[in-house]
Simulated scan of single mutants.
Amino acid sequence: MEPFAGELVAESFAEAGIDVRFHTQMERVERPEPGGKVTVHLGDGPPLEADEVLVATGRDVATRGGSGSTRSACPTTPPVEVDDSMRATGVAGGWLYAVGDVNGRALLTHMGKYQARICGDVIAARARGDELPAMRDLADSYGSPQVVFTDPQVCAVGRTEEEARNEGFRVRAVEYDMGAVTGAYLLGDGYRGKAKAVVDEDRKVLLGVTFAGPGAAELLHAATIAVTAEVPLDRLWHAVPSFPTVSEIWLRLLETYGL
């Protein structure tokens, strides 16, 4: 995600009374008495006491030793490696298909549903003897939309500015304060948020879009369409947002870019 998204979430956490600590190492955790408080000993500073400790360890796929893949987050249970039609590449006869988290491509519910539609079309075409549907630039690459349901919500599709530059694109990025959009007042007093668009300067298409703000996830599908369909910016200029809504952020980003 773009750095500003995490900064806005951290500010919101702090306002809610959450003590957020960055770059903090835990040396050990102990519970002296069964059912009692947990003590967390830190590398720097006094220990912390808590009722419980929640550790975010990520997810693993329940493949029980399926075919290997370098994309696995956990080497002990690798995902089922598939091609762009969701067909397992390591199974003789090509009878096995794998969609969703089990293939390790994009561990998101909506991406599993998308892959299932692709897979169903392929299986139906094979059953009829038709030519298999063309697969190009599957959405579970940079077209995969992501939402973090924090307060504020953080959502993004495509590349961040840093990713785009590292891949060699000639990039220009524009940002806009979502709270300055007229429709923001309809969602509540003191609305705070930020949007960022990453533009391929050579082709004049969007490489990525990030929103952070209350209810921002509802804006993401429009960004997903623009990024995956590579809609030219001069066409987006004529996609008129309703007034007064937060979707006017699109107009403001394009104005900031200079169209």
Rank of each mutant, 00 (worst) to 15 (best):
A73Q: 14
G66W: 04
V40Y: 09
P75Q: 01
G45R: 08
H41W: 14
L48P: 04
T39L: 04
G66N: 02
A62M: 10
G65H: 02
G58L: 07
T70A: 15
V55I: 11
D51F: 07
S72E: 00
A50C: 14
G66R: 09
E52N: 15
D51W: 11
E52S: 15
R59D: 01
A73V: 13
L54P: 09
G68V: 11
L48H: 08
P75L: 02
G66H: 04
T39P: 05
P46I: 05
H41C: 11
P46C: 09
H41A: 11
C74D: 15
G45L: 03
A62T: 08
A50K: 14
P46G: 12
V55C: 02
D44I: 09
P75N: 01
G43T: 03
R59Y: 06
D51M: 08
G66Y: 03
V55G: 00
T39K: 10
L48V: 03
G45H: 02
T70P: 15
G58P: 06
T70E: 13
P75A: 01
H41S: 11
V55H: 04
L48I: 05
P47F: 00
G58F: 00
S69T: 06
T70V: 13
A50Y: 10
S67L: 00
P46Q: 15
L54T: 05
E49I: 03
L42W: 08
R64I: 05
L42C: 10
L42S: 07
S72P: 05
D44L: 08
G58V: 01
